[in-house]
Design a protein around this nucleic acid. Structure first.
Lengths: 189, 189
DNA sequence: GGTATTCTAGAATATTACCTCTAATAAGGG
DNA sequence: CCCTTATTAGAGGTAATATTCTAGAATACC
């Protein structure tokens, strides 16, 4: 009931993402997002109460998009698959990857909106649980080592290519696996 | 001759660095830097023509501080020492590390000041040369693998701790070395 | 067809931050 | 002791940006 929306939440977030990917996060001002969409700024404020809320929503949407496959691989008990998820996801979603991996949550919004705190907590809990669950099922695997192999190394490997705006080459996957096996005491468990 | 300076270039850069480390790069406005130093904004503009120039100078100073030891290790032909340089340097210079490793040059200044272009080029050349020189002296070592082992992996390993504001633990060094040996075909060459 | 509801539309306002400009201040040289 | 020079000092201009506000448009339900 009521007038149908001409600009959806996702459309607005997509516009913000595109601008952030092209010209940096600082360029994603309300005016710029509205202009790219051909919308007046009022429409943005109708959906997102503030600039901070808009960017925070974009951040959460991006984290959720990334996290799914990662947690899935961990739950399936496949650490190497989890490690490979990062380069693979980056190839499929370059703009989102640039946002997620080249920025900190802190710099998105000066003050993180309280109403989105729970959403983020949920995501954090989800990933913590997956890591803990994996570690507990693999007695030799230290928690720190697991994060190093499945998060830190893939992250570092991918970052340089994101900065240059090109997809990570296949060699990245090979080296990520090599590092994985060097640090985690499991051949194919 | 003339009145002696009350606020030196380095003092100003230190203030900017401290603010960036504590509250993020966006908080390092001219007013904030001046306030932290107890100086008027005019003094900052007397030494640095613009906000961009100030941040660019800070960036260059930081890169130079980091790069010295890294290049040195590479020139000495010790890849593992080069890889360990990152975590070690982070422990000694936490604020500088947070700036250098958690930000891109691009987001410091929208337009990089032309007059500092050469300074940056020099630093980039220096590191390129060191990497090339090392690779040419070690026939089995691929360029991409060398960067992965000495730059990307240490970078990823250290990042999480920088975000949390604490120094990388010793385990990081151990894992960085393990990854190094898994990827580079040299035992102790 | 009327009415409630949701949204677009964009002008106007407030805030914020960069930057400039003029005067005052503090040393050193003659 | 005066004059030159480099610097402090900070008020105020300007531009960009977030935000608000009022009016109007489009749809669904009755």
């Amino acid at each position: 009931m009521g007038r149908p929306a001409k600009f959806s939440r996702d459309q607005i977030l997509d516009a913000a993402l595109a601008i952030a990917a092209e010209d940096g996060l600082g360029a994603a001002t309300m005016t710029a997002i509205a202009a790219r969409l051909g919308a007046p700024t009022g429409s943005l404020y109708h959906r997102f109460g503030s600039h901070d809320l808009l960017l925070a929503a974009l951040w959460i949407r991006t984290v959720r998009s990334f996290q799914g496959g990662f947690v899935e691989a961990l739950v399936a008990g496949d650490a190497e698959m989890a490690a490979l998820h990062t380069p693979r996801w980056c190839r499929r979603h370059p703009a989102q990857a640039a946002l997620l991996l080249l920025h900190r949550r802190q710099e998105l919004a000066a003050r993180w909106p309280a109403e989105l705190g729970e959403d983020l907590d949920l995501l954090n809990t989800q990933i913590s649980d997956a890591l803990n669950s994996f570690a507990s099922r693999h007695p030799g695997v230290d928690h720190e080592r697991l994060i190093f192999a499945t998060v830190d190394v893939p992250y570092g490997a991918v970052r340089r290519y994101l900065l240059e705006g090109r997809p990570p080459p296949p060699l990245v996957d090979e080296m990520v696996i090599a590092a994985c096996r060097a640090v985690l005491p499991l051949g194919e468990a």
